[in-house]
Amino acid sequence: MAKPNKKLPTRSVDIVCGKCKALLFKYKKGGKGALVKCFKERIVVDYTTSPCTCPSCDIVFAREALVRGTPAYKIIGSKAVLK
Score class of each variant (00 low, 15 high):
Ser50Thr: 15
Lys32Tyr: 10
Ala22Asp: 12
Asn5Arg: 15
Ala62Gln: 07
Gly33Gln: 08
Thr10Gly: 09
Pro71Trp: 08
Leu66Lys: 12
Ser78Pro: 02
Asp46Leu: 05
Leu66Thr: 09
Asn5Cys: 13
Pro55Phe: 11
Cys38Met: 13
Val60Thr: 15
Arg68Leu: 02
Gly77Thr: 02
Lys83His: 11
Ser50Ala: 14
Lys37Val: 11
Ser78Val: 07
Ala2Lys: 07
Gly31Val: 07
Pro51Arg: 07
Cys38Glu: 03
Ile76Gln: 11
Asp14Thr: 10
Ala2Pro: 08
Lys74His: 04
Phe25Trp: 12
Lys19Cys: 04
Lys79His: 07
Gly18Ser: 05
Cys54Gln: 08
Cys57Met: 10
Ala72Gln: 04
Pro4His: 01
Leu82Thr: 14
Lys3Ser: 09
Lys3His: 10
Cys20Ser: 11
Glu41Ile: 02
Lys74Tyr: 00
Lys37Gln: 13
Pro51Asp: 12
Cys52Phe: 07
Ala72Ile: 04
Leu82Glu: 15
Lys3Asn: 06
Asp58Val: 00
Glu41Phe: 11
Gly31Ala: 08
Arg11Cys: 04
Asn5Ser: 15
Leu82Asp: 11
Pro51Lys: 09
Arg11Gly: 01
Asn5Gln: 14
Pro51Asn: 08
Asp14Val: 04
Arg63Thr: 11
Lys26Asn: 12
Leu24Trp: 09
Arg42Gln: 09
Val45Leu: 10
Ala34Ile: 14
Asn5Gly: 07
Thr49Ile: 09
Gly77Glu: 09
Arg68Met: 04
Ser50Trp: 04
Lys32Thr: 14
Lys7Phe: 08
Pro55Val: 06
Arg68Gly: 00
Val81Gln: 14
Lys37Pro: 00
Thr48Ala: 10
Leu82Phe: 04
Cys20Arg: 13
Lys19Glu: 14
Ser12Phe: 00
Cys57Ala: 07
Lys40Cys: 10
Ala62Tyr: 06
Thr48Trp: 05
Ala72Thr: 04
Lys29Gly: 06
Arg42Pro: 00
Ile43Val: 15
Pro71His: 05
Gly77Asp: 13
Pro51Tyr: 02
Gly77Val: 01
Leu35Arg: 10
Tyr73Lys: 03
Thr49Cys: 06
Gly69Glu: 02
Val36Trp: 01
Arg68Pro: 00
Val16Ile: 15
Cys20Lys: 07
Cys52Ile: 03
Ile59Val: 15
Gly18Val: 03
Ala22Glu: 15
Leu23Ala: 10
Val13Pro: 07
Lys6Ala: 13
Arg68His: 07
Leu82His: 01
Met1Pro: 02
Phe61Lys: 08
Pro9Val: 05
Lys19Gln: 13
Val45Asn: 09
Pro9Ile: 02
Ala34His: 15
Arg42His: 05
Val44Glu: 11
Lys19Ser: 12
Cys17Tyr: 05
Cys57His: 06
Leu8Cys: 01
Ile43Gln: 10
Cys57Ser: 06
Arg63Asp: 12
Thr10Tyr: 00
Thr48Ile: 05
Pro55Thr: 05
